Amino acid sequence: MATELHLVSKTGMFQEMESRQHRMTADEPENNHGTDKGPAPYELLLASLAACSSATLRMYAGRKGFELGTITADLKFKRDADGNEKIERVISFSENISEERMERIRDIIEKTPVTKTLKRGTPIVTRFE
């Protein structure tokens, strides 16, 4: 799986991005030198994790033939005074899910592609042209 993104930054913290036919923006809030015209980079990171989590759970439930109803995901990125970072992810469903199915869902959520990428710390190779 290859994924690509093209970014153009003309001035300040505002960023314009393209991925396939989709256009996105990113910015920092005003209290962090931005203009607040889009989500901040860490918010986009959380959005990626939330979207992948929900999509993976939908695929799993679809294959197993049961409903999850509305999926709600609330994520927070936290950094403590020592610089330790963590993401808190809270997932809920509007449908009642049996404990047996919830046990499997707990396993599946830890194996979503973005979860695995973040947990293993994917290397980043940077080149300047």
Rank of each mutant, 00 (worst) to 15 (best):
F128I: 09
L75E: 08
T122N: 10
G83C: 04
M17V: 05
D74H: 14
G121W: 01
S53N: 14
T56W: 00
I87L: 09
L68I: 15
N84I: 14
S19E: 06
A50P: 00
I87N: 01
T3P: 00
E30V: 08
L57I: 10
P29E: 09
E110S: 11
T122L: 12
E129I: 06
T126W: 03
D74C: 10
E4G: 05
L7W: 05
T122Q: 12
M13K: 07
L75S: 06
K64C: 06
L68D: 07
E103S: 14
A2D: 14
N96I: 13
G12V: 03
V8R: 14
R106G: 04
D80E: 09
K86M: 11
I124V: 07
S53R: 01
H33P: 03
I91Y: 03
A47Q: 03
T70V: 12
F77Q: 14
G83D: 09
D27P: 00
H33V: 11
E85F: 01
E95P: 00
E100M: 05
M24K: 04
S48L: 01
L7E: 11
T126E: 08
T126C: 09
N96H: 09
I71T: 04
L44I: 10
F93P: 00
S54I: 06
F14K: 07
L5N: 10
N31Q: 15
R89A: 05
D27A: 03
E85L: 05
A50Y: 01
L75M: 14
F77C: 09
L49D: 00
K76F: 12
P39H: 02
P29F: 04
E88R: 09
L44H: 04
M59K: 12
I124P: 02
G38A: 04
M17A: 12
D36M: 01
E129P: 01
T3C: 11
T25N: 13
N84G: 06
Y60W: 15
K119D: 15
S53K: 04
D27L: 01
E67V: 06
I97D: 06
M17L: 11
S19M: 11
Y42K: 11
A50I: 03
A50C: 06
Y60L: 04
F93M: 09
V8F: 08
T72C: 13
L46E: 00
N32V: 13
K76Q: 10
S48D: 06
I108C: 07
P29K: 13
H6C: 05
E129R: 13
P39T: 03
R89F: 02
K119S: 10
I105S: 02
S94K: 07
F66E: 07
V125P: 00
K111W: 10
